[in-house]
Design a protein around this nucleic acid. Sequence first.
DNA 1: TTTT
DNA 2: TTTT
Lengths: 112, 112, 112, 112
Amino acid sequence: MSTLKNKVQLIGNVGLEPTITNLENGKKVARFSLATNEHYKNGQGEKQTDTNWHTIIAWGKTADIIEKYVTKGKEIAVEGKLGTRAYDDKDGNKRHVTEVIVSEILLLGNNN
Amino acid sequence: MSTLKNKVQLIGNVGLEPTITNLENGKKVARFSLATNEHYKNGQGEKQTDTNWHTIIAWGKTADIIEKYVTKGKEIAVEGKLGTRAYDDKDGNKRHVTEVIVSEILLLGNNN
Amino acid sequence: MSTLKNKVQLIGNVGLEPTITNLENGKKVARFSLATNEHYKNGQGEKQTDTNWHTIIAWGKTADIIEKYVTKGKEIAVEGKLGTRAYDDKDGNKRHVTEVIVSEILLLGNNN
Amino acid sequence: MSTLKNKVQLIGNVGLEPTITNLENGKKVARFSLATNEHYKNGQGEKQTDTNWHTIIAWGKTADIIEKYVTKGKEIAVEGKLGTRAYDDKDGNKRHVTEVIVSEILLLGNNN
DNA sequence: TTTT
DNA sequence: TTTT
């Protein structure tokens, strides 16, 4: 499972408190949204912000760290890979889901 | 627009011939799917392959390079950022789309 | 000049005030040392810190940003490439120098 | 030991056959040089190549893979971290060594 | 010392 | 020389 082939790195702010789920098989999953904000000036010289909201998911030890330390608003860096899934919805349409499956987290800034 | 905040790197194979669209405003867009393949052994020691299909999109010069050099099956490395969009479908459900907006391409292997 | 072929990313603390040099040709160069700190536990369960000191160099606009915003102690993220040079010292020995030539900087944490 | 804090990624060609050393403590080390080549055009529109030679070092399992598969001339991708060391040479001058300590290797191209 |  |  080569991380060189599929790598995502994001630095941003946590949108809401992470959701922690303890699965029946004893595994833990953490989920949250992360906003990455890009600042630029448009053709008229006006400041613009472009925000992307990423679905973050983590398992095991990484989920433990998220449960303990990651809270709404925090600035964090994450690294992981892109997970893509396709499914048929109730109307028979093909739907695609993309998640960032995170294996590493770094807390940034003033962590009080 | 800091690339440090939102970065994706993929090494994989092109699924189909890229689609090139020339927009009315003179801009060019390229679209294609890229497969990243991970090989691992499961608990029984059997070889498994886990494939993720990524939606790739590129503009301008990068789209030019794709039009000229990127063909079905080719092994390439790409770098870019994750773009996320939300929209309401015809039934009023919120849908999420994630694309890899590529700014750099590297052709790998034997490029004959 | 493909950044996919040669990429370095560091998150650490600035060791000393950056040195800014205005060259005769009108170009500006910034230089400073950046410490990356890794924390781990050794075999005896004792906390250890492993620090690497990196020589950072930047040109042009990036040097401008460093001159304005980067000061001793600050936590920053940088991205760039590895530059290697070889030269013969005064005793005729081959010497090797490695520098991180930075093209992007992100100020982290509490930037007051 | 966060890989987010100190990361290097290189895609290039192996300069010479790797050197494999079996240490007294049973550990294996692999060493080799990797060339990254950047192609660009200068002010006169002439094609230029800028080559950087990187000192690569790897331990354990990664060294095993290098011993088996990495040979002179091969195109590979590597990921790891920057290791920096300082020492005093026989004349009492401070010398600095920078190595890329590789934890992952990907063989590219036509691997016959 | 590599490669295209 | 940095930082937690």
